[in-house]
Design a protein around this nucleic acid. Sequence first.
DNA 1: ACAGGCATGTAAATAGTTACATGATTCG
DNA 2: CGAATCATGTAACTATTTACATGCCTGT
Lengths: 184, 184
Amino acid sequence: MELSPTAYVILGMISREPRSGYEIKSLVDETTRFFWAASYGQIYPELKRLSEAGLVEGVEAPRGDRKRTLHAITAEGERELKDWLRRAPQTFEMREEGLLKLFFSGVLPPKDAAETLGWMHEQRAGTAARLRELEPGASEKRDGGDPFPLMVLQAGIEFNEWFADWCERMEARLRDAAATEGSK
Amino acid sequence: MELSPTAYVILGMISREPRSGYEIKSLVDETTRFFWAASYGQIYPELKRLSEAGLVEGVEAPRGDRKRTLHAITAEGERELKDWLRRAPQTFEMREEGLLKLFFSGVLPPKDAAETLGWMHEQRAGTAARLRELEPGASEKRDGGDPFPLMVLQAGIEFNEWFADWCERMEARLRDAAATEGSK
DNA sequence: ACAGGCATGTAAATAGTTACATGATTCG
DNA sequence: CGAATCATGTAACTATTTACATGCCTGT
């Protein structure tokens, strides 16, 4: 069966323990957000569909008077998840407004391109720093258990550090070019 | 003014010379595709909107009997493009199904995760190779002219090479873990 | 008492892909 | 002559974001 990508995110997130929609959203924001996001507007309707398809089962688990539904994966849901995991990945997309601006920067003075690179650098260095703070938590959980969330987190850190570094190198290149130009 | 992201891709693509919708699409596919894509379903309607807004002007330029409209940027369109270029980039998104699968790979035997990494590696190495083939063309155009398309292409190459390398290192890590496990 | 987090959901808008329809021109 | 490429567009669908509405619970 071919489900929507968000469906698999949900199945994955509840594969170890049942969770509420709210919890799924928080987890996504803490973990897969940087390479696969999901909003409430996707999660709740998708949970309903998965429930109707029998891949997920709702369990009422109120906290006090507040209603709360934990969503558990069914045997069939687990089969779907595993089937998907074993198929080759299809989607590799990136939308990077910074690179797009840089691409067209020839229509402006080089100084403006340098500023774009500065913004990109700041953004990527900041993201890398924030992800690095999550590393100790992910390392703990890994021990004896699942090594993959940590592995993926490290990919995120490395990627953002590589990108920040690339921006710095390109800024330097623009500075050098400007200096050469100036000394002619 | 706040235009759709695709609008800026179009304005950028026609900023140096007028182009047909078909040409814009081909250019996008050859250049910005890996960090900002666009389909006909976006390009033609957007051209109409930009035309109505006075940022783009259509010029009839038939080839033989075949109708053809070249779209030229207007003075106002150029102002919009430059304004946008000078604002800080907002959008940084990635959708990487491979990393998503890897993230959930704890529910399967490690061998399956290694296979996912293998696919990811193949895909990224292939993309890097294809981009590297475009480098000579981009280098030529740069001389005396616009250095930014080449710069961005090199970012694409470096990124895909970094990613391919990361996949290899993680595959090795899984192999080592399996060996340690086996020798206990 | 109030802020912040927990919890569920929907409506509207925007974005984007895919598939289709149509037809001319060019190159081998 | 047939295939590939040039060229324009639309319809239907899928995906996704944003904003809103509602209200309980916990800690200060």
